[in-house]
Structures are given as structure tokens and as C-alpha cells.
Amino acid sequence: MKHTLAILVENKPGVLTRVAGLFSRRGFNIESLAVGVTENADTSRITIVVSGDDHILEQVEKQLNKLIDVIRVSDLPVEESVNRELALIKVGVDSTTRAEVMQIVDIFRAKIVDVGIKSLIIEVTGDESKINAIDQLLRQFGIKELVRTGRIAMNRGAKSVQAEKK
């Protein structure tokens, strides 16, 4: 069972090392990781996708909360949150395939952000399955390079992950 955790941390050097180090030494597996600053400059938000049963998830959350620089840990269930990843995909094309690739890009509401004689760079955002799907479809044309961000996620509706409970 996969869980998406939103972890609010102090925006200080070394905090990511503390969080990542905890996962490795406790034997928890990180499937995806994304970090960035939040609406407050002194707070960063780490989004981690971790797989494990309820017991493992409980331990992950408790151990994270023991870190002094961790302010808050929230589990974001998929059905109650918006989940996004971004991928840049460089696809090899020639005059015969370019049109077909562009059609696929349209269907996925992706964007072409760079055009070369023999290649295109496609930018696509969406949840994991959407990115997997476009990846599969583009493979037949020859993917020269692919880079994906980790997942980021946010609660739907008014509920939000805040440093201080309101």
C-alpha cells in the first residue's frame, strides 16, 4: 500500500539528510521524493511516497515526528488529494513521425517545449499513471532521455497542511 506523506520541516541546511537518513536506517523505502519551500520562507515541504502496511506507516510517521526539525507530518490519501508529477521526455522524431507524436501530446494535454530537427522535448504533468501512459506510448518513437520529478500532493477542498494547527 502506497502512502503520500507531506512533511513540513524547518528550512535549514541538512534537514533533508536527516529525513532521508531516517528512512534508510529504519529500512523504510522511499519511492518518490520532492522538496521545495512553502508559502513561508522558513518552512520547506517534503513530499515522500512510501510503501508499507499500516504498522510501517505508523512507525514512519512517529519516527519522523521525533526529528526536531520536522514540524508536521500528514498522510494525504489519493482520493482526497490532488497528486501531480512532472516529466520531461525527449523523443526522437523525423518528418514521418513528428505529426503522430504531436497528436499524442495533444491528447495528453502535454506541451512541446523544445523542437529540434531530430527530436522534441515534451513536458507533461499529471498523476503517476498518466505519465506512465504517455511514456509507454512514446517509447515506439524512441525516447532519448526522460526525467521525472517526485510526486507532490495537496488536500482537496478547504483542508490544508499548515505548520500551526488552526
Binding site: 520541516v9 524547518e10 515526528n65 526529528l67 526536531i68 526539525d69 520536522v70 514540524i71 508536521r72 505548520a163 500551526e164
Partner: peptide
């Protein structure tokens, strides 16, 4: 300092 502020502890 007299006081400390640790948001995460």
C-alpha cells in the same frame, strides 16, 4: 535567551 522556540519539538 530566556525562551526557546522549537516548532517541531
Amino acid at each position: 535567551p530566556e525562551e526557546i522556540k522549537l516548532r517541531g519539538y
